[in-house]
Design a protein around this nucleic acid. Structure first.
Lengths: 216, 216
DNA sequence: TCCCTGATATGAACATCGTTCACAGCACAT
DNA sequence: ATGTGCTGTGAACGATGTTCATATCAGGGA
């Protein structure tokens, strides 16, 4: 086939690429299950190959790296987390009190999600790119999207502050809640019972909200 | 040597054990340097062996595991962190205002330490025990000791709350600051400049302190 | 219908880990 | 001097991610 038109190429590509896309989905599914069950270190190329029924080498036709695979699983997790946070505070608050409630709800939803998806959630923060770390930009934008769930109630709570100020604040608030959850679920320390953890989270968020609302 | 007295045994042991202890210190030094320079993944048994001038197998006479080595490095880091936090708030505060200042100082010292010892600091939280994870109890007690730097000012700030309540609060406060620092230093997201990070930390701690002080 | 060619799948091979182990050498008591 | 128990040695082992020569296949032209 010396001469190959665009159309022929596309047809040929779509024919095989369909299978490929399906198998790629299977691969990500398998990887997701493996991580959820055995953690990030439990992800083995050979096990995945066996599970989706192909040779080890074939994986590298579906995905460039193991890193890319982890990233794609992370993307799914991030999407589910986003949905969970959205469900926690469906409509925009119309008063500072509602805003505070919304922030508490989002924070507790975050805690619940992390607990229910412990291993997958950990991957979002544990995983580090190898060496030169050319972080894909779609990851960055996905991360930013998560702050939105905090940014909206925050805009109701402190409407007088500047946009960038609220951006920083939302990031700080998210990070604080994340820290409490992360260390609370860390079994290296004495585990905190769920009730207490949720109580601490709510208390902290309310303290910050009250402080923000009554700020000079 | 059918019969060996206690004295003989001790003498024999101390003779070789002295070298061993010295070499073990060298090993931990080398591991610390390696981690500080190249991160936890840059810690290789063969490189360590070459650096301290022994065979790979000899490492396992000085240390049971690579895990134990990481733990020992972590212990050192924790000790330095403890010293840094102690230096940040030397004397016990005598008023709620001083207590709040002390907490801010400790939080900023934490941020500074994390920034200046990024890789070593990360190991404290990244590292996970293999499988059955029999976490050594000296690690736990060392971790608890860190909360003390927060617990003391907190006792001045909210002297009416119960002991256990303050314990939980100190843990929560630590976790919140840790979260802000951890995500702030994460290069997977857009890096936050140091000034802004410190400002956010101070702002958050002051908000929480004010909320605690004026709590009904 | 029958190749022939370019893409794809295969799994053995490779590099690199942590860890183990049979063996050599050494220090020291006898 | 001599044997004996400890200790250092580095080759070997078992995993692991990744690559690559080779086999297989799909599908379009005579």
């Amino acid at each position: 086939m010396v001469h190959k038109t665009k159309g022929e190429e596309r047809k040929a590509v779509t024919a095989t690429a369909e299978r490929r896309e399906k198998q790629r989905a299977q691969l990500i599914d398998a990887a997701e299950r493996a991580i959820a069950r055995k953690g990030l270190d439990g992800l083995k190329a050979r096990e995945l190959a066996q599970e989706i029924g192909c040779a080890v080498g074939a994986i590298y036709n579906l995905v460039q790296d193991m890193d890319e695979l982890v990233l794609r699983v992370g993307s799914r997790t991030l999407a589910r987390l986003d949905a969970a946070l959205r469900a926690a505070a469906p409509q925009a608050p119309s008063s500072p009190e509602e805003a505070a409630d919304a922030l508490v709800m989002v924070a507790l939803a975050y805690s619940t999600f992390a607990r229910d998806n412990l291993q997958l959630w950990r991957v979002l923060f544990e995983h580090r790119m190898a060496e030169g770390a050319p972080v894909p930009d779609w990851i960055v934008s996905e991360q930013m999207a998560m702050f939105r769930h905090i940014l909206e109630p925050l805009s109701v709570l402190v409407p007088d502050r500047s946009e960038v100020e609220r951006g920083l604040l939302s990031r700080t608030l998210f990070s604080a809640v994340h820290g409490v959850v992360a260390i609370g679920l860390e079994e290296k320390l004495i585990a905190v019972p769920r009730r207490e953890l949720d109580r601490q989270i709510e208390g902290m968020v309310r303290l910050i909200c009250r402080g923000l609302a009554t700020d000079r």
